[in-house]
């Protein structure tokens, strides 16, 4: 009978979804909810136990913590500069890869290599390159600069390392977008007398906006929660000049065992990232509705 079969198949489908649902609940939902709960308690140990209810005081502490604002500043700077640099360089690489080149497969393979490297390895690599005593960068330039020796320069060198790795993925997203743009449109612009520059700005970029928006959302979110490359390259120094919000959260939670405070910081990262994502998506939707 048909209704029985539908019910049976539905149950079977639910059963097949169960492992995935269990993993999602266990690995994503449970920690997310547990962290939220923890942020309302004064949890000052990794060990299970009963801890006093703290209400919103962990959140209030974030805003009264004088160390938090410099850390937020570093994170904002890192996010804006690295995302912008990756977008500009990624666009250049995507345009090159989209051009009629010989051995296209080789160039594409080479470009993807930095992205394929684990971030920890990338961080260690750049830590050696930037070493003021025996790093290859000073050897190449014939200088004696301590690249990781002053806070602002070190933050910029971490950005360089991040850009080197992530420009590839940005380039590939944009390349995918470029390949959906019909050549006829560009050819028509050329026939109408548009220069290469004008064709790029008035034909390619508008049609590439959805891809750019996706890249911006992904890279902004990733850059805002940067942790591993900082941990490996500088350990947050010198003089705390490369500490980011995620790194500071880690310090508070795991080094200082202030898990309640760390949870509140983690939730503020989630809120900030969510707000950024919504902003980008809203801009994208408005552009689409306006037919841009």
């Amino acid at each position: 009978m048909k209704p029985v079969r539908v019910r049976g198949e539905g149950r079977f489908a639910l059963f097949l979804l169960l492992p995935a649902a269990t993993v999602v609940f266990g690995v994503v939902l449970y920690p997310v909810l547990r962290t939220l709960l923890m942020s309302f308690y004064k949890v000052d140990s990794a060990m299970p136990g009963s801890y006093p209810f703290a209400g919103l005081s962990n959140y209030a502490k974030v805003f009264s913590d004088p160390s938090f604002y410099p850390v937020l500043g570093h994170t904002a700077y890192f996010t804006v500069v690295s995302t912008a640099a990756e977008l500009v360089l990624g666009m250049g690489v995507a345009l090159l890869l989209n051009a009629p080149l010989r051995f296209k497969w080789l160039w594409r393979s080479l470009v993807v290599l930095p992205w394929a490297l684990p971030t920890i390895v990338n961080g260690a690599l750049w830590r050696w390159i930037d070493n003021g005593q025996y790093g290859v960068l000073n050897q190449l330039l014939g200088t004696e600069i301590q690249w990781l020796g002053s806070p602002f320069l070190a933050l910029n060198m971490v950005i360089v390392a991040d850009v080197w790795k992530n420009t590839s993925i940005v380039a590939f997203f944009l390349l995918a977008g470029l390949q959906t743009i019909p050549n006829e449109l560009r050819e028509a612009a050329v026939v109408d007398g548009a220069s290469t520059w004008r064709t790029f700005w008035q034909v390619v970029v508008p049609l590439l906006k959805p891809s750019i928006a996706v890249v911006l959302v992904l890279r902004t979110i990733e850059a805002f929660k940067v942790f591993d490359i900082v941990y490996v390259m500088t350990g947050g120094g010198p003089a705390s000049g490369t500490q980011t919000v995620a790194f500071y959260t880690y310090l508070q939670a795991f080094s200082n065992q202030l898990f309640g405070y760390g949870a509140a910081l983690a939730y503020l990262i989630v809120i900030a990232v969510g707000a950024l994502a919504m902003f980008y998506l809203r801009v994208l939707r408005q552009n689409q509705m306006a037919g841009v």
Binding site: N131, G132, Q133, Q146, L148, G149, T234, G237, P238
Partner: peptide, 12 residues
Amino acid sequence: TNPASTQSLEAD
């Protein structure tokens, strides 16, 4: 003092 000191650990 070597200016690299502010980025060095014991292994360095």
